[in-house]
Simulated scan of single mutants.
Amino acid sequence: MDMKQRRQWNENHKRLKEIILKTEEHSKAVQLFLNQHSLLHSSSISQMVHETLEDKLMKNLDETTFRQFPVPNPDTKNSIAWHLWHIARIEDMTMNLLVADEQQVLYSANWLEKMNISFTHSGNDMPEEDIAILSSRIDIHSLLAYRAAVGIQTQKVISSLKPGQFKIQVDQNRITRLFDEKAVLPNSRWLAEYWSKKNIAGLMLMPATRHIFLHLNKCVRIKEKLHKQTKKLILMKSVP
């Protein structure tokens, strides 16, 4: 997914925002959402022909770069590992808990054990020592598998919604579940309050698409900067 394709993604997102609440455009909105969403996950979950943004990130991504924390980027200190985990958790809890009122994917197949972590929350307001622990311990392949499982489930959830349902406001009982299931920490209550003011369309336009797009772009920038630094160090060492 090159810069031209990313600009097109932004244009399509604007188009989705224009039509998502129009009942007569429901089918088009669903299809556009599914396409936008697929471009943010591995091409393996949707058999896409084109390289996705996740594909671009994972290409030639070494483990050291994946786990490094803190990173030297001006807009984030967090590792690529943290960003991928964070967007997977946000998507999981908003789509399955707030939209579908169903079980989170996290609890469907021992994902915490597979990922070798114990954190169940979104990662917002996370102490740096915990970010460091997650970045060093999380199992890369299981994290990517969990993210793929979340993506597949999101597409099922949104495809099952009927015309008019995108206008439905988030139910307060589902907001309560965020805290009951420790998906959102008490000191991140602001996040739950933000979601409580959204309708399903709002959750589709941010947590399930644009939020992921922004974080994956950050990850690509982290990778590119760290790889440049590594090449520079190698070059310096090679000079007599």
Rank of each mutant, 00 (worst) to 15 (best):
L16M: 05
K17Y: 04
K17P: 00
E18W: 05
I19N: 01
I19R: 01
I19W: 00
I20F: 08
I20D: 06
E24G: 07
H26C: 13
H26D: 14
H26S: 14
S27A: 14
A29W: 04
A29R: 05
V30C: 05
Q31D: 14
Q31A: 14
L32V: 04
F33K: 02
F33L: 01
N35D: 11
N35R: 09
Q36W: 05
H37K: 09
H37A: 10
S38W: 04
S38Y: 07
S38C: 12
S38N: 11
L39T: 11
H41L: 11
H41Y: 15
S42H: 07
S42M: 10
S42Q: 10
S43C: 12
I45H: 07
I45R: 04
I45M: 09
S46N: 05
S46I: 01
S46W: 01
Q47V: 09
Q47C: 11
Q47S: 15
M48C: 15
V49D: 15
V49K: 15
H50K: 13
H50C: 12
H50V: 13
H50Y: 12
H50T: 14
E51T: 09
E51P: 00
T52M: 02
L53M: 13
D55F: 02
D55Q: 02
D55N: 04
K56C: 14
L57A: 03
M58K: 07
M58F: 13
M58Y: 09
K59I: 14
K59A: 15
D62F: 01
D62L: 01
D62R: 00
D62I: 01
T64G: 12
T64M: 08
T64W: 08
T65F: 00
R67G: 06
R67V: 07
Q68C: 05
F69C: 01
P70F: 07
V71C: 06
P72I: 08
P72T: 10
N73W: 06
P74M: 11
P74N: 10
D75I: 10
T76W: 09
K77S: 12
K77D: 13
K77N: 12
N78T: 12
S79C: 05
A81D: 02
A81N: 00
W82S: 06
L84N: 03
L84M: 05
W85M: 08
H86T: 10
H86E: 08
I87Y: 06
I87L: 15
A88H: 06
E91R: 13
E91M: 14
E91D: 14
M93H: 03
T94H: 02
T94V: 07
M95H: 07
M95Q: 08
M95T: 08
L97H: 11
L98T: 03
L98H: 03
L98K: 02
L98F: 02
A100V: 13
A100R: 12
A100S: 14
D101C: 07
E102M: 09
E102I: 06
Q103I: 12
Q103C: 11
Q103A: 15
Q103E: 15
V105I: 11
L106N: 01
L106I: 03
L106W: 00
Y107R: 08
S108Q: 04
S108W: 00
S108F: 01
A109Y: 06
A109H: 08
W111G: 03
W111Q: 04
W111L: 05
L112M: 10
L112C: 08
L112W: 04
E113W: 04
K114N: 13
M115H: 03
M115P: 03
M115G: 03
M115T: 03
N116K: 15
I117C: 07
I117G: 04
S118D: 15
F119N: 11
F119R: 10
F119H: 10
